[in-house]
Write a protein that binds this DNA or RNA. Structure first.
Length: 112
DNA sequence: TAATTGACCGATC
DNA sequence: AGATCGGCCAATT
């Protein structure tokens, strides 16, 4: 296990652990926030290596689809876990969930 | 060494 | 809106 992995993994894990329930982040987004821009492809691998349970299912593609093969058991599991916390789907794509705190609207105004 | 492989991304057509 | 393509970069083969 390379030293790079160890450092990278821990940063990624921390970011993923910080994703609130009902919200999702992209692989590239996680990598960027973790301080490793352009390392999107590494994020999935890091998740698979986590010794602690992580909300791995809150990490999705930048186009808001799931990264697993459609219909696979992993895909169904992730979709189920997300739906369980209120994330809605339009077919394969995730519908961005409203943060039920009206704070966002107060601060930013109605979107779209 | 060199080639292939990913739980990917963004621009472009 | 969907498909293609080039770029990405450590790990694995």
């Amino acid at each position: 296990m390379s030293r790079f992995q160890n450092k990278f993994d821990h940063h990624v894990w921390r970011v993923v652990a910080s994703i609130p329930a009902g919200r999702v982040m992209g692989y590239g987004e996680v990598a960027r926030v973790a301080g490793f821009p352009r390392y999107s492809r590494m994020v999935g691998a890091a998740l698979g290596r986590s010794p602690e349970p992580l909300p791995w299912f809150r990490v999705v593609r930048s186009n808001r689809t799931l990264a697993f093969e459609v219909g696979s058991s992993a895909y169904r599991e992730q979709a189920q876990l997300l739906k369980q916390e209120g994330v809605r789907f339009d077919g394969l794509k995730i519908i961005e969930v409203e943060t039920d705190d009206s704070l966002d609207r107060i601060l930013w105004g109605p979107q779209e």
